[in-house]
Amino acid sequence: MMQHQHLIACRECDLLNVTKPYSPEDISRCSRCGSLLHSSKINSIDRTLALVIAGLMFFLIACCYPLLNLKVVGAETTNKMITGVIDLYHYGLKDCSLMVFMMTIIVPFIKLAMLLYILLSLKLNINVPGRLFIFRMYHTLDVWGMLDVYMLAIIVAMVKLVDFATVSTGIGLYAFIVLIVISLSASATLDHHLIWEKLEESR
């Protein structure tokens, strides 16, 4: 199939836009509907790789330590990210439990792991199998990762409980906040176009 590297079709309106040759930190928008066509990032691979490694570390901490502690007259309970999933399951809401598990744990974790695999192999210049497939899956899964929504849910839950009991924060919550900042930065520094080109070249 013939390639058209100087042209890019707008994802929202299908208009063909002519793009300039690649330059760092270049943002281009569709001339008809204004949607983002692509935005290049400086030093994308190094920066994103560093963030992904840090993100995975904080992910483990956020998963292993309690997020919140609750105290009412002597009695105390704590929760971790996974306990919500397990309890929904035990209360009989299996579908809800699965949704929460996928959106707050599995998808965010797999997304980070996929980026680590791709970026590390690009950085070290080794050709490992399945990278194009993995990056495609990354795009398919992207919308289903909802760490930011979960963060807001934690805040809302805390406010809601203030009336009933004493709520205090756990180590897991601090790690979780750092994780949110890291994963937002990682998606901001990831240069999709660059990665696709590099993966295609080295195939």
């Binding site: 919140l68 704590t78 929760n79 999933v85 309890d87 929904l88 929460v100 929504v149 849910a153 809302v156």
Partner: peptide, 17 residues
């Protein structure tokens, strides 16, 4: 999904019989 996540957090945390 906010409400669902909040319910999962509350269900796990608020278990004081």
């Amino acid at each position: 999904m906010l409400d669902i996540f909040m319910i999962s957090i509350l269900a796990a945390l608020v278990k004081l019989g």
